[in-house]
């Protein structure tokens, strides 16, 4: 049960999803044309069209190294839907992750279990919310929850991306859901790794790129 992000990277650029694009007004373009001496054999519409496409090409060139496959964390042990919560939580801690994909025996991703999913199930929106209840001495962890399977808690369907997803697709996918990590799916539909939002953001930062 996986879902591709709803926006397709092959769509023509819209004002919203085009990165850092400055909206050029006709006046901007005409003023620039006035600054260049001589008659320019071009309309503002032509200029805008050329500018927009060239900008897109430049972005693609600058960020061509960014693909889900390159940035993802490969060493991820997914949970299975039957894993009881009590066994899932140590798995988070051991792997140093706050989200873990849930996959079946064939490594097909069924959903994702996040820290937030667990918190919500415990009746708290955040860790601090949970802590507040612990401090107040409220009973907050019902013992029978420990044995419930992960499939009852997980978010499904999950937004996932293919190995070759590039900057645009990843941005759209992260914008589509609040998760901090996304399963990366290989061509045969199996789990290939986990892409962390912070890793993606670091890779996008021009100063951090080699």
């Amino acid at each position: 049960m996986t879902q591709r992000p709803s926006r397709d990277s092959s769509e023509p650029p819209s004002a919203q999803d085009d990165l850092a694009e400055i909206e050029l007004t006709d006046d901007d373009i005409l003023e620039a044309m006035r600054e260049i001496p001589g008659y320019l054999d071009i309309t503002t519409m032509d200029f805008r069209a050329v500018y927009r496409l060239a900008h897109r090409h430049a972005i693609d060139r600058l960020f061509s190294g960014i693909t889900a496959g390159r940035l993802m964390r490969r060493a991820v042990s997914p949970l299975t839907p039957e894993t009881p919560l009590a066994a899932a939580i140590p798995s988070f801690v051991r792997q140093g992750l706050k989200s873990l994909p849930v996959a079946d025996g064939q490594q097909r991703v069924l959903g994702i279990l996040t820290e937030t999913d667990v918190m919500r199930r415990l009746g708290a929106e955040t860790f601090l919310g949970l802590l507040a209840r612990v401090i107040a001495g409220e009973p907050c962890i019902e013992p029978e929850l420990h044995h419930r399977p992960v499939s009852e808690f997980m978010t499904s369907p999950v937004v996932s991306v293919p190995l070759d997803a590039g900057l645009r697709e990843l941005l759209a996918a992260f914008a589509d859901h609040p998760g901090r990590a996304m399963p990366v799916i290989s061509a045969d539909g199996r789990l290939a790794g986990l892409l962390l939002r912070k890793v993606f953001l670091t890779a996008c930062h021009p100063d951090h790129r080699s």
Binding site: D26, L30, M33, P37, Y39, I42, T44, M45
Partner: peptide, 14 residues
């Protein structure tokens, strides 16, 4: 036609 796109008049020296 569109309202856009009329190139400006060139300078007198031009």
């Amino acid at each position: 036609g569109s309202v856009h796109g009329r190139p400006p008049r060139v300078s007198l020296s031009e």
